[in-house]
Design a protein around this nucleic acid. Structure first.
Lengths: 190, 190
DNA sequence: CGAATCTCTACTAATCTAATATGGTTTGCA
DNA sequence: TGCAAACCATATTAGATTAGTAGAGATTCG
C-alpha cells in the first residue's frame, strides 16, 4: 500500500510544474525544483528522464533549458502517472484492470480475499483515475491564496522572499487539522 | 499500492481458518492449509508464527494440533491484520493515522500530493477498517452455496470429493464477470 | 515409543530502493 | 569562440526487502 520515493518525487515534480505553469513559468530546471523540494538532484534527473519517456513532460536542452508539461494538465491523470512509474494500482494482480494475472488460489470466483481487494482497488482507482493535475493545481493554489501564503515558483522578475508558514511541531500537539481534497472542494461550493 | 505475498498468504490463511471454523472445524494444520492453497509450507509456518504474535490466531501443539482463530471473527478487522503484517495503510507516511511521520516537503498543510494521498488513504481505510473476517467468511460461504460449489474444509467425516469449478481460460475470453463485496452484499438485500 | 504437529534460528538468492558517480551533449550568450 | 548552464546516458552501490529454504528442536496423542 506504499508509494515509493521515486513515485512520490515524480508526482511532486509534476504538481510543481503545473503550479509554475499556472503562475507564468512554463519551464523549470531540475536543480531549482530539487532545491525547492529538497530532493537529490541526480535522482530527480533520472525521474524526469522517465517522465519524459512516459510523455508527461518535455525537455528543452542547453542554457535556459528545463522541463515543462508535455500536455494540458486536464489530460494528466494521477492514475496514469502512478501506473507508469510504480506499476499497477491493484493490491494483488488478480484484481488489476490494466495488468490482470490469474492468482494461485484454487477458485478465483469464490475467493473472499479477491472480493475484498477488488473493492480496495476500485476505491483507489476511482480517486486516482478521476483527479487530474489540473484539479490538484487549482485546489492547491486556491488554498495557498485563502491562507495568504506566498506561492513558490513566481516568475523570476516578481520573485518575492518566500514566507514560510510556522513550523509544525513534530509531536503533533497544536497541529492544525489537515484537509482532504474533498473537504477543500466542498468549501468552494458554499 | 501492493500487498506482499506474506500479507496475501496471511489473509488467505485467516479466511480459510474462518471458513473452516464456520463449518465445524475450528483447527487446521499448516500443512493442510498450505496444500489447499498451494503455498510453501515453511513460509506459511513463519507467517502463522507472526499471526500468533499479533494474537489473531492461537496454536495447539503436538499431534492433532494446529492453528485456530484467537478471537471472534467479528473482532478481526482486515485493517488491523494488514497494518500488523505490512505496516501502515497510508501510501505516504505523512497521511498515516497510526504511524504519522512528517514528510520532507516545505509546507505540509498546502501540499497537493498530501491532500490527494489523504483521500486515497481514507478510501482504503474505510474499507479495510470496516470489514471483519466475519463479513468475508459469511459472504464467501453464501456465494459458494449460491453457485452450488462444494466448500473446502469440511469436517473430516463428511469430507466429499471436491468439485472444482471449470477452469478459467487464461486469455480472459468467456471469463465470467467478477463481483466485488459490495455487489454480493447488495444482492442479498433484494 | 513414534509420528505428527508447532517452534526457533539461521541462511540465501534475487530483486528493489534510493541514491551516487562520471562523463557526456546541447545551447545561449558574452 | 568559449564557457557555463542545462539536459542525457550509463554504471555502480550499499542497504533493505522479498520470498522463500533448511534443519534441528519441543510437544503431544495414541
Amino acid at each position: 500500500m506504499k508509494l515509493s520515493k521515486r513515485g512520490e518525487y515524480a508526482l511532486r515534480a509534476l504538481i510543481d510544474l503545473g503550479i509554475a505553469q499556472e503562475l507564468g513559468r512554463p519551464i523549470l530546471q531540475v536543480s531549482e525544483l530539487a532545491a525547492k523540494e529538497k530532493l537529490p538532484v541526480k535522482f530527480l534527473e533520472q525521474i524526469f528522464a522517465q517522465l519524459k519517456l512516459g510523455e508527461f513532460v518535455k525537455s528543452t536542452r542547453g542554457k535556459l533549458g528545463g522541463y515543462s508539461l508535455a500536455k494540458p494538465m486536464t489530460r494528466i491523470k494521477f492514475g496514469s502517472v502512478i501506473r507508469f512509474i510504480e506499476g499497477p494500482l491493484a493490491p494483488i494482480q488478480c484484481v488489476s484492470q490494466t495488468a490482470y494475472v490469474r492468482c494461485s488460489c484454487p477458485d478465483e470466483v469464490h475467493c473472499g480475499l479477491r472480493m475484498l481487494m477488488l473493492d480496495v482497488h476500485n476505491a483507489i482507482a476511482k480517486i486516482l483515475d478521476r483527479y487530474t493535475l489540473a484539479d490538484i493545481v487549482e485546489i492547491t493554489l486556491r488554498k495557498l491564496r485563502r491562507d495568504k501564503v506566498a506561492s513558490p515558483f513566481l516568475p523570476p522578475s516578481t520573485q518575492l522572499p518566500l514566507v514560510l508558514p510556522p513550523a509544525v511541531d513534530l509531536l503533533g500537539r497544536g497541529r492544525r487539522e489537515f484537509e482532504s481534497l474533498k473537504q477543500v472542494s466542498e468549501k468552494r461550493r458554499k
